[in-house]
Amino acid sequence: MKPFAYHRPTDLAQAAALLASTPDAAIIGGGMSLLPVLKLRLAEHAALVDLGRIDGLRNITAGNAELSIGAGARHAEVAASPEVARTIPALAALAGGIGDPHVRNRGTLGGVLANSDPAADYPAAVLALGASIHTNRRSLLADTFFRGLFTTALEPGEIITRVTFPVPLAAGYAKFRSPASRFAIVGVFVARFAEGVRVAATGAGPCVFRVRHMEEALTGSFTGQAIAGMTVAADGLNGDIHAEPSYRAHLVGVMARRAVAAALAA
């Protein structure tokens, strides 16, 4: 790791000021994605601005229609939160299945979303639930937030502060883990609302995406049967030594059915 300055501001304004005034500064949340890149010397930053001391950034609150999770909330906190368990238990289960205990005790919701790793779990939930991503400058809808491989709508220096999730009638997540990294080879989140069903797949493509034909079928009938035999096209999906594109395409179908089963069992 190359040397860098390290700042731990205690409020958002300070953090924003540091980011604005220091060239080549980066935000650090849990560091679980950023630190490996620095240690491998694939990136270097003059300064890191750690959000860990900012008051309230880790709060989790829930009303009847909406769950709000601070960008600094650790995966382990989300997994164990009674508010999350009461409103969107599938989200707690998802957080509890990220990486390993070390990663869950450090990694944050904001860090995952800003990073937009194609194999990360949260993006599937955020997109399927139609969540809003709030920053120190504005609010963004999930549908416009994820832009591509490791790319989001965030501007330089923009800080995610919290994410609000509409509470669905039912939801489920099914993940096919990479046996090596335990990231998602394919993860599918299904969320059923009064207005209809939303389905989002992560791991399969360069960026999380919605599976519209499954949404339509499930809106008609929220059962595994409704999407029996359905997959997505393999074209443009990720291929690597663990999973070829056609296998990922197949897994989107399998995981979607398992996610529906999980939602129905909840």
Partner: peptide
């Protein structure tokens, strides 16, 4: 080497 880290070499 494509499996050059524990992210890809499955122990």
């Amino acid at each position: 080497l494509l499996s050059g880290s524990f992210m890809d070499y499955c122990m």
